[in-house]
Each structure stands twice: as structure tokens, then as C-alpha cells.
């Protein structure tokens, strides 16, 4: 049996074998967070930056005790930021938090009903962050023109939404995602909207370089099992993409030969 090989997933000059990136939000507790992320096989893990709760138990475990920067490549996000300015501040805080680590997930949101990306603020923030030496993986709409602008500015990964953050509606416009994939020289990841394994497989079959998800695992009834499902789905979708699927036909094409039938 020949072994099947794949090129590594490369972002910002770093190689990874897993093409599944996961978030750390919405879990029941840190034990569940750590177990689900380990089960997913993810090597890049996102987290959020928030004010320290003052006056509380300062000995309580910290997320970074569970998701060790030694084991995982941490990807701080700017979730909750509605302006370029706040997103830039958040990235600078994250860089300080991680001792100079400069890979970030930029997301600047438009409103709290849709959490849809505000692309005007996103473009402004990307410009400032890139000038400040950050490697920017950018969450954006599935607009190919905006994606092209972000790539031209120097973002190291383009991450269009599949559907609204946390909605679990899957990939609502696969045609746009495909357009973005076909035009991009940097990795394209579907980020947001993945609800179940088939959504992740679909992203990979479209030709995405990776998938970033959080709620689909954290809000599954059994997060550990869904983490495993997502790992397998991303691998299956990737292999299906690399295989080159069979052409679609309008009519049937028998798998068993016509010749030699007993009624022939």
C-alpha cells in the first residue's frame, strides 16, 4: 500500500500538518476545552483577549495553562472589536501577552446581531498591523474583491465566513468561496458558520487550505466526538479535493459491465 502524502499547511512561513484550526470559546470548563482540542488534532488554536477579572482568585487556572504555547501555535483574535483602533490595541496586547508572538486573527465586526465583518475597519486595521510587523490572518466577508485587496496588502491568510459566526449554517455561498480560492496565492480558510462535519468537508472539497471553527465542537452534545468528526472531515475533504472528483453526469453510467449479462 502506498502512503498518501500531502504538502504541509503553511501560513506565515510556518508548516503545520493539521488543516483544522479551532477556537477555545463556549466550552463547559477548561478540562473539556483541553480534551476537545487535543482530540481535534488542531495545532493552531485561537483565543480572545479580555480584561483580567480583578479581585477574583488569582490562583485560578488560566487558559494558557491548558492550551500551552509550547504545544500549540496560539492565534489571538480581535473578537468583540468594532473599530480598527480597538482591534489594533487588542493585537498589541496579545503580542505582549505572548512574548512577541506576532501571528494574529484580525476580525472587526459590524454589529452584534450579525457579527458580520466591517470590511472598511478591517482594511484599516490590517494596514496598521502589517506596518507594525504582525502576520495577519484576516476574517472577512466572502467578497472576492475585498479578499483580493486584503491579500494585496500583505495578509498571510484570507478567511471568509461560511455563514454568520456561531450560526452553524454552513457555507452559504460556495461559489464565492471558490472564487476567492482560485484567485488567492495565500491560504484561504473558511472561518465561521461551520455547523457539522459535512460543512467542514465541503470547505476542504472546495479547495480551502483549512477550516477554522469553534461552536460546532463546543456546542455539540458530545464535544469530544465532534472534535474527532471534524478532524476526520477535514482530512476526508482534503483527500477528496486532492483526488479530483469524478465528473457529474446528467444520466446514469453503470458500474457493472454490460457485456456477458445472462439476458444479453
Amino acid at each position: 500500500m502506498t502512503s498518501l502524502t500531502d504538502t504541509p499547511f503553511t501560513v506565515a512561513g510556518r508548516d503545520f500538518s493539521s488543516r483544522l484550526l479551532v477556537g477555545t470559546g463556549k466550552y463547559k470548563d477548561f478540562d473539556e476545552t483541553g480534551a476537545a482540542i487535543a482530540q481535534s488534532g488542531a495545532e493552531i488554536v485561537t483565543f480572545a483577549v479580555r480584561r483580567t477579572n480583578l479581585g477574583q482568585d488569582t490562583e485560578a487556572p488560566n487558559l494558557l495553562d491548558v492550551i500551552s504555547p509550547k504545544r500549540y501555535t496560539l492565534l489571538p483574535n480581535t473578537a468583540g472589536c468594532y473599530t480598527a483602533k480597538d482591534a489594533v490595541r487588542t493585537c498589541r496586547l496579545a503580542r505582549e501577552l505572548l512574548d512577541g508572538h506576532n501571528l494574529v486573527k484580525l476580525e472587526v465586526l459590524g454589529d452584534d446581531t450579525t457579527l458580520y465583518p466591517n470590511v472598511v475597519e478591517t482594511l484599516q486595521a490590517a494596514e496598521t498591523l502589517l506596518a507594525d510587523g504582525f502576520d495577519v490572518m484576516v476574517y472577512t466577508s466572502d467578497d472576492p474583491i475585498v479578499a483580493r485587496e486584503l491579500e494585496a496588502m500583505g495578509c498571510c491568510a484570507i478567511m471568509p465566513l461560511g455563514s454568520l459566526i456561531g450560526s452553524g449554517h454552513g457555507i452559504q455561498n460556495p461559489h464565492n468561496v471558490r472564487l476567492i480560492i482560485e484567485q488567492s496565492q495565500v491560504p484561504v480558510l473558511v472561518d465561521a458558520g461551520i455547523g457539522t462535519a459535512s460543512d467542514a468537508a465541503m470547505a476542504m472539497e472546495l479547495g480551502c487550505d483549512g477550516v477554522l471553527l469553534n461552536s460546532a465542537i463546543a456546542h455539540a452534545r458530545d464535544p469530544l466526538r465532534m472534535a474527532n468528526a471534524m478532524k476526520l472531515a477535514v482530512q476526508a475533504g482534503r483527500d477528496a479535493f486532492l483526488s479530483g472528483r469524478m465528473p457529474r453526469r446528467q444520466t446514469a453510467d453503470p458500474s457493472s459491465p454490460f457485456a456477458g449479462r445472462i439476458n444479453g
Binding site: G23, Y27, P76
Partner: peptide, 25 residues
């Protein structure tokens, strides 16, 4: 920066933020 915390004197009216990592996607 951490290396400058001990050399940074606070002044009346300063706005200080102290942040950490939490779960997020």
C-alpha cells in the same frame, strides 16, 4: 512591556488596562 513595568511610574488620571487570555473563537 513586562521589562518596563518596574520603571513605569503611574500618574493621576492614567487609564490602565490589564488583560489576559480567555476562551474564544
Amino acid at each position: 512591556p513586562k521589562s518596563q513595568l518596574a520603571d513605569t511610574r503611574l500618574a493621576n488620571g492614567d487609564h490602565v488596562e490589564v488583560v489576559h487570555a480567555i476562551g474564544g473563537g
